[in-house]
């Protein structure tokens, strides 16, 4: 079993906020991680560092054994895919072209999209209920439809490690469930893992077996969800009282209103 991502003594800060001090994180295949923390604690920043989009940290990040900052961009993009927090519609490309652009790291400079690429992209659109949208311009999608297109693109990138920043943004409950199901099937396998930035503790509990908590002052906690998901820990991390109610269907987390 090869470790997908490991950090050693990773220290990240941005704009005077300590995101994490000496973070030692190991993500192995078959794991799904939730990255949780209050607003402004640096979840997005940390995610950008973990997928090589930002530099300027101390300590090391290794992606499938190699230093992430030493990997050429295309090789890096074959190992880790990222769903960013904010969507851009650009100049209104078609949905299918946008999804196919995830094959860029695998294609030579002047190649047209090949049949297998098109088949892969079409299959991911179908999984996310977007078949009828393939020829539509991004400009003419709703926020939730655009989010699903971006998730289809991430799946088409077909990487061992997937990092998703608030994947549930703009999605209705039905699509949240569908997306989590597809992500669980596609991105968490014998040789794959994912990390999701989430705000909903219940979604995090049901979809992720490991949690990484950021306190906002550089302190962090990482472990299985059972080690993390108690009232005292969560209340401390979020700075707000959180109740855990155990039910036959599993625990339910309720922030005090």
């Amino acid at each position: 079993m090869n470790t997908l991502l490991s950090t050693s003594k990773l220290t990240v800060s941005i704009g005077g906020v300590r995101v994490c001090d000496a973070l030692d994180l190991v993500i192995d295949p078959g794991q799904s991680w939730a990255l949780l923390g209050r607003n402004g604690s640096g979840k997005t920043t940390l995610l950008h560092h973990l997928c090589g989009l930002r530099r300027g940290h101390t300590g090391g990040i290794r992606l499938l054994g190699d230093d992430i900052d030493a990997l050429p961009p295309r090789q890096r993009a074959r190992r880790v895919s990222a769903l960013l927090q904010h969507s851009e519609r650009g100049f209104g490309r078609r949905v299918i072209d946008t999804v196919l652009s995830a094959r860029h790291p695998y294609q030579p400079m002047l190649a047209w999209d090949t049949g297998p690429d098109l088949a892969l992209a079409t299959r991911q659109l179908e999984r996310l209920g977007l078949t009828d949208f393939a020829q539509r311009s991004l400009q003419r999608l709703s926020g939730g439809e655009l989010r699903r297109v971006e998730i289809a693109r991430l799946l088409t990138q077909d990487c061992p490690l997937s990092l998703l920043d608030e994947p549930m943004n703009h999605l209705d409950p039905g699509h949240q469930s569908r997306v989590l199901h597809v992500l669980g099937r596609q991105c968490v396998t014998d040789d794959r893992a994912m990390l999701l930035v989430l705000h909903d503790l219940n979604l995090a509990y049901h979809s992720c077996d490991h949690w990484l908590l950021l306190a906002g002052n550089g302190e962090w906690l990482a472990g299985t969800r059972e080690q993390m998901a108690d009232e005292q820990t969560l209340t401390g991390v979020f700075g707000h009282p959180i109740r855990r109610i155990d039910s036959p269907a599993g625990p339910v987390f309720l922030p005090a209103l």
């Binding site: 993009a77 960013l84 652009s101 790291p105």
Partner: peptide, 23 residues
């Protein structure tokens, strides 16, 4: 034209393009 595909991707945001392997 040699960079056409990278330009297409960059049109959807540079950070996104970087995550898709564009330098």
């Amino acid at each position: 034209v040699l960079r056409a595909r990278e330009l297409d991707i960059a049109g959807g945001g540079l950070l996104q393009a970087a995550s898709l392997g564009v330098d």
